[in-house]
Deep mutational scan, measured.
Amino acid sequence: MSGIALSRLAQERKAWRKDHPFGFVAVPTKNPDGTMNLMNWECAIPGKKGTPWEGGLFKLRMLFKDDYPSSPPKCKFEPPLFHPNVYPSGTVCLSILEEDKDWRPAITIKQILLGIQELLNEPNIQDPAQAEAYTIYCQNRVEYEKRVRAQAKKFAPS
């Protein structure tokens, strides 16, 4: 494992614990031996107030490669969400998460999670990743928002 990646992720964890947006979660997972795995984080993004996503808490896994922060983490909703920019596998399609697009090593975990929260309610229809959600979003916004509200209710924190 890269010392650069681990040191950056340790800084990220410290900064997150000191200050993070209300309702968001970002925690490194534990290895079988109980030690912390900084390369694999369990996160959760709350649906934004005043949107059909409100009330939901959407679980996301963030996986970092050894060359982080040169390369972005892979962000994957578990379980996958109904959304035009979420692949059926759950992987998020967002330009700041793509090395050859808008990724920059200075982007923080907090910025990534806030960017994904923004994307939930403002899909990028130029870059669809899920045919069904994309089609319904474009053709029947009322039905799309109904499905999103049902999903938010399903993923409401207990």
Results as ranks from 00 to 15, higher is better:
148 V>L: 07
123 P>D: 01
119 L>K: 02
51 T>G: 07
126 Q>C: 11
19 D>N: 07
129 A>V: 00
123 P>T: 05
6 L>Q: 11
109 I>A: 12
30 K>E: 07
145 E>F: 12
51 T>W: 02
65 K>P: 11
38 L>R: 00
89 S>H: 15
67 D>R: 08
126 Q>E: 13
67 D>A: 12
51 T>L: 00
137 Y>P: 00
110 K>I: 07
22 F>E: 01
129 A>C: 04
99 E>L: 00
98 E>Y: 15
41 W>P: 03
83 H>Q: 03
77 F>N: 03
158 S>D: 03
131 A>Y: 06
33 D>L: 04
115 G>H: 00
23 G>H: 06
29 T>Q: 07
109 I>E: 02
91 T>C: 15
108 T>K: 14
107 I>N: 14
23 G>A: 07
91 T>D: 06
146 K>W: 02
76 K>Q: 14
99 E>Q: 09
124 N>T: 02
24 F>H: 05
109 I>G: 05
62 M>R: 04
117 Q>P: 11
22 F>D: 06
59 K>N: 11
43 C>V: 15
16 W>C: 06
123 P>C: 04
84 P>F: 01
129 A>K: 02
46 P>Y: 07
128 P>L: 01
122 E>L: 10
19 D>K: 06
42 E>V: 12
118 E>F: 15
16 W>A: 05
29 T>E: 13
120 L>C: 05
133 A>W: 03
106 A>R: 00
100 D>R: 07
19 D>H: 07
51 T>F: 05
27 V>C: 14
103 W>K: 01
117 Q>W: 08
119 L>N: 04
127 D>M: 01
74 K>Q: 14
155 F>W: 00
139 Q>A: 10
125 I>K: 04
90 G>I: 02
132 E>Q: 09
53 W>R: 03
144 Y>D: 02
21 P>H: 05
45 I>P: 07
95 S>M: 01
39 M>G: 09
103 W>T: 03
75 C>N: 08
39 M>K: 06
57 L>F: 09
92 V>E: 01
61 R>N: 14
33 D>C: 05
59 K>C: 13
158 S>M: 14
26 A>M: 01
110 K>P: 09
128 P>W: 04
110 K>Q: 08
82 F>W: 10
76 K>H: 15
72 P>R: 06
113 L>F: 06
126 Q>G: 11
155 F>Y: 11
60 L>P: 05
14 K>C: 15
97 L>W: 10
131 A>Q: 15
